[in-house]
Amino acid sequence: MSLVNTSTSHCLSKAIAEDGVSIVYEDLGHGEPLVLLHGVTESHESWHEAGYVEQFLQRERRLILIDCRGHGRSGKPHDPAAYSGRRRAADIVAVLDHAGIRRAALMGHSMGGVIALATAVYHPDRVSALIVNGAHPFAEDLAPLRAAFEDNFEAWLAFLKQLVPDLSPDSCRRIRGNDLAAVQASLARDGPDFAAAFAGPGIPVLAISGTLDPRCDAARKFAELAGGEFLPLVGKNHVTAFLDVETIRPVIDEFLGCVSTRNTGRGG
């Protein structure tokens, strides 16, 4: 099923998750697949705005940009149970199946990074590599986030503008356009600890974090645990680390190039 994304003039597709929730995604380019998963209150459009899409398409990658459940044009259940790691991981598999993709590299920022990690835990055979920015697999108290969404999105916007004073009007529009009850449901449960699943060699990992992000130490610890790579972005916070495309992109190119070479050497 397809529909038109009027904001980007691209065609969107819709997969149906195992619990019936619609998951909307954009499928662009040709080459090795890379799934892009956005942060809380954002949508797949954030990857366009930040410049990732243009950069990656120039490198002959097939990009799958997903509106995570509860966000963008995807379904927005109000039941906290609908936002378990298992359910969110199944969403990614539903999209891969719908797009005819057997395995893909997953790249996620913040919430999207946690979803990428959950997918690797529950469906490791579908994940060729993990790139997570501002995320980790350790337990996390989400009470501060829940507090930011008690009444509306204004407290959250005020917090983001402390991190990025020139937050774009499009980003503000996307954030205010969210379904508050769905966002609250998605944050109702604290982040679980599933770090044990990444102990030792396994799926190749690139962890990224701004050094001013409170999650930086956990991201570094995750990279060490998984035997992966760690990219610290000096002087960047949780949001500006996502926006630093010029620094991140060449590191990702090298990382994914090594993954591709390794997979080719193993016969795919």
Score class of each variant (00 low, 15 high):
Thr211Tyr: 06
Pro33Phe: 09
Leu243Thr: 07
Ser110Cys: 08
Asp213Val: 05
Glu150Asn: 06
Ala223Val: 07
Gly39Ser: 09
Arg61Phe: 01
Ser9Lys: 12
Ser46Phe: 02
Leu106Met: 13
Glu246Gln: 12
Glu18Cys: 04
Val24Trp: 10
Asp67Gln: 07
Ala147Asn: 03
His109Thr: 14
Val205Glu: 02
Gly227Ile: 11
Leu167Arg: 11
Leu233Pro: 06
Leu157Lys: 02
Val251Cys: 10
Asp170Ala: 15
Gly134Met: 03
Ile131Ser: 03
Ser186His: 00
Asp193Phe: 06
Gly75Ser: 04
Ala135Trp: 03
Asn237Lys: 13
Ala139Thr: 01
Met1Ser: 14
His238Asp: 09
Ala155Trp: 00
Asp244Asn: 09
Ala195His: 09
Pro144Met: 06
Ala197Val: 06
Leu142Glu: 00
Leu180His: 07
Tyr122Met: 04
Ala241Glu: 14
Ala241Gly: 15
Ile131Thr: 07
His71Gln: 15
Pro33Met: 11
Arg249Gln: 14
Asp67Ile: 08
Asp91Pro: 06
Phe149Lys: 00
Ile16Lys: 12
Ser110Thr: 05
Val35Met: 09
Val127Thr: 11
Ile23Arg: 05
Gly265Leu: 15
Asn152Gln: 00
Leu160Glu: 11
Val24Gln: 04
Thr119Tyr: 02
Ser46Trp: 02
Ser9Gln: 14
Trp47Glu: 08
Ile208Val: 15
Thr247Met: 11
Ser171Thr: 15
Gly51Lys: 01
Ser186Tyr: 00
Asp97Gln: 10
Ile131His: 03
Leu187Met: 05
Leu231Tyr: 08
Ala181Glu: 13
His78Ile: 08
Leu212Lys: 12
His238Trp: 08
Gly235Met: 07
Phe255Leu: 09
Arg176Gln: 12
Ala99His: 09
Leu187Pro: 00
Leu256Gln: 11
Asp217Phe: 03
Tyr122Leu: 05
Glu154Ala: 01
Arg249Ser: 15
Ala99Ser: 09
Val164Phe: 03
Ala82Cys: 12
Asn133Pro: 04
Phe149Trp: 08
Asp166Gln: 12
Phe149Val: 08
Pro124Ser: 07
Arg88Leu: 15
His30Val: 13
Val40Pro: 00
Lys221Arg: 15
